[in-house]
Design a protein around this nucleic acid. Sequence first.
DNA 1: GTGGTCTAGACCACT
DNA 2: GTGGTCTAGACCACC
Lengths: 126, 126, 126, 126
Amino acid sequence: MDYNPALPIYLQVMTAIKHDIVVGRLALGEKMPSVRDLAIQYTINPNTAGRVYKELESEGVCFTRRGMGTFVTEEEEKVLQMKEEMAGDLISQFLGGMRRLGISREEAIGLVARYQSKADADGNGK
Amino acid sequence: MDYNPALPIYLQVMTAIKHDIVVGRLALGEKMPSVRDLAIQYTINPNTAGRVYKELESEGVCFTRRGMGTFVTEEEEKVLQMKEEMAGDLISQFLGGMRRLGISREEAIGLVARYQSKADADGNGK
Amino acid sequence: MDYNPALPIYLQVMTAIKHDIVVGRLALGEKMPSVRDLAIQYTINPNTAGRVYKELESEGVCFTRRGMGTFVTEEEEKVLQMKEEMAGDLISQFLGGMRRLGISREEAIGLVARYQSKADADGNGK
Amino acid sequence: MDYNPALPIYLQVMTAIKHDIVVGRLALGEKMPSVRDLAIQYTINPNTAGRVYKELESEGVCFTRRGMGTFVTEEEEKVLQMKEEMAGDLISQFLGGMRRLGISREEAIGLVARYQSKADADGNGK
DNA sequence: GTGGTCTAGACCACT
DNA sequence: GTGGTCTAGACCACC
């Protein structure tokens, strides 16, 4: 994983973990890596890893049991909410960019519906 | 303007200028700031500013006359092409993010159509 | 190498390298000197050497891999095209000079066919 | 007229004048501009203009009569010789360039015979 | 005044 | 080690 130096690393790791939960790579209630393992896995400082879990817990994304470890929340509701929030961020960013290009929401929707990526459109990679 | 350290400054300035052209803040054929003024305006080195214009020219976005200055292209066609390209990039990035959340294009379109920004919900029209 | 002050150095070095490729002193796909070595070899600034490679790459003459180096293109087609282009430039310049002397293309061809260099006439084969 | 800083100006002016003679813009025996007028015409120093005539005279291209001025040679033979010499230089330079591209004289002749300039070949200027 | 080129020296990311 | 970017400051040619 490579980090955007403009953003705090702990935020970027939080986002990556939320992704894992939303798409099911981390199941509801599943045990998450130890702080030390998380630090190794993301090549970050153990202190930073600890902060990641602390912030995620404050958002209700996970909870910790002393001596047991950290676990993904068991509330499906919460996961749906996360998904909506992350999707909302994407949409907001997308519509903002389109607006800056002078493109309305309706036009944007039409464009998304018709969108063909370059790779799809033509058969060659160049 | 604050720069994303993950991207070359000259690319970010190029994008900002393209935006200005696409939305008409810079008109077709209009004289653009001198290399030195651009450097001041974006707080970059005159060399970097020169590179911005050179790269933009190689993309056909502007043209330059020695001793006269740099000018926005006079081909409206080119501006439309730029707009499409920039919109395409936004869509690609948007759909990629949604796919990573496990959301299909069709679902994404539905979400965009129903999307209400926080600001809108609060009654803030801006 | 001594440079013609009337032409940008980077263009002259580009031409020299293209010559090397066209006549096979630099083979298809072969690794080219590093930017720093090129700078030493041609007694130019590393920045200028980098520009040479960048411009050559934009012409499709070479390609570059980060951390690996710069390599001659692997497309023989491209080399043939370069050769034709460089020959075309020579011919254009030659015919232009002849025309300025009031000599037609047909006459020029006849002169070339009968041409004996001073060195040849003296029996010097080089 | 713009001068190539790599070559002495007086040589460049000499070449320009020889051109004028070879193509007949300056006729056999015609009076040439005074040293002062030549200096103005080519925006060079009068000393340099004097040197131009001195060198041309030493080559037999012109002759001077005290109190009368400088005149183009009256020997048609000489003009032919100049033309041949200048054409020979062009041919030598041309064949040298071709040889450096690995192209023989015979091939070069074929290319010249078939040569179509870009402008001639296609009807558009771009 | 305009853009174009060059040098010097620095820091970065990738291998 | 590789190329890529950026700054600083200089000189040039053109208008």
